[in-house]
């Protein structure tokens, strides 16, 4: 099945939305041209479904009163597509026939999309198009996406590297803090050892405390990260008017952060405490 709407036509100029009665009647007698416009255009030009506009393929022509009158039949939402984010031009969708008539280029399309029910149907449709339409090649949308999203994959890899460096750096920070925390308590540990608390108990309690600190810390960090991502998304979605998510706290990232924090925390607690309990308590007391 051919998609309901033809391609986005950036070259199409949009005339003044207010249309006189004569033109309106004329439009009504014809088969009415209906279009879909994107949300941002609707917002900026204060257009609603049912409004009439003049479309023209050449700049300025629509304003002069010529061109096709069309009724806005639908307002489309922006896709969450990173390649669309930075584009601030407006998208208008027309029926293929209307578009061809408007551009004066009948029987010519550069690209069109077909929605299938998925599964083997996709391949059979592809095969039939490739056999029947000379000069055309049908691709799966997934394959096209791979091609167009390569840049984003690279950017995303950079982001992952930055995230990893951040996590490792804060992990080392955590390590230092825990080492200091344990070091601060050398006299307490000395007192415990003098009281007859075994090395194992001392190490165990410190490791447990370190694990708890790491766990609570990473939970707080995750919460903070989540809040940050909500704010960032809220801000940039407003700026770019897209449903795209700019910051994501994925379960994978959370898992890496929590595991790293606990491993580092427990490791630091263990190292620092074993070092301290091996030191004679009187030495720990600073004698």
């Amino acid at each position: 099945m051919l998609s309901r709407w033809g391609l986005v036509a950036p070259l199409i100029c949009l005339g003044a939305p207010a249309i006189g009665g004569a033109q309106a009647n004329q439009a009504a007698t014809r088969n009415q041209t209906s279009i879909a416009i994107d949300e941002r255009l609707a917002d900026d030009a204060h257009l609603r479904v049912g409004d009439r506009v003049v479309l023209s393929a050449a700049p300025g022509v629509g304003v002069a009163g010529r061109g096709d009158t069309a009724v806005i039949a639908a307002i489309t939402k922006q896709d969450a597509d990173p390649s669309e984010v930075a584009r601030d031009d407006y998208g208008i969708r027309l029926h293929l026939g209307d578009l061809q008539r408007l551009t004066g280029d009948p029987d010519r399309v550069h690209r069109f999309a077909i929605r299938t029910v998925g599964g083997p149907a996709t391949d059979s449709v592809r095969a039939r198009i490739n056999d029947a339409a000379f000069g055309f090649h049908a691709y799966r949308s997934a394959d096209v996406a791979v091609g167009t999203s390569r840049t984003f994959q690279v950017v995303s890899r950079f982001h992952r590297a930055i995230a990893l460096i951040t996590i490792v750096a804060s992990g080392i920070f955590l390590l230092c803090i825990l080492l200091l925390r344990v070091e601060e308590r050398r006299r307490d540990i000395a007192a415990l050892r003098l009281m007859g608390i075994s090395r194992r108990s001392v190490v165990w309690s410190i490791v447990l405390e370190a694990a708890l600190i790491s766990l609570v810390g990473s939970a707080l960090g995750t919460g903070l990260g989540w809040l940050g991502s909500v704010l960032i998304n809220w801000h940039y979605r407003g700026v770019y008017r897209t449903p795209l998510a700019f910051a994501l706290v994925t379960s994978h990232i959370v898992l890496v952060a929590v595991v790293l924090a606990i491993v580092l925390g427990v490791g630091a607690g263990y190292l620092a405490s074993t070092r301290l309990v091996r030191t004679p308590p009187l030495t720990l007391f600073g004698r």
Partner: peptide, 30 residues
């Protein structure tokens, strides 16, 4: 260590109570 735990009580000039524990928990520790 075990002998100190069961046979000797230590009192220090600077108390060395565990700050996160309550009085009762400190006493329970040994």
């Amino acid at each position: 260590t075990e002998f100190r735990l069961r046979h000797i009580g230590f009192v220090f000039q600077r108390f060395y109570l565990m700050a996160m524990l309550t009085a009762r928990e400190n006493v329970e520790l040994p």
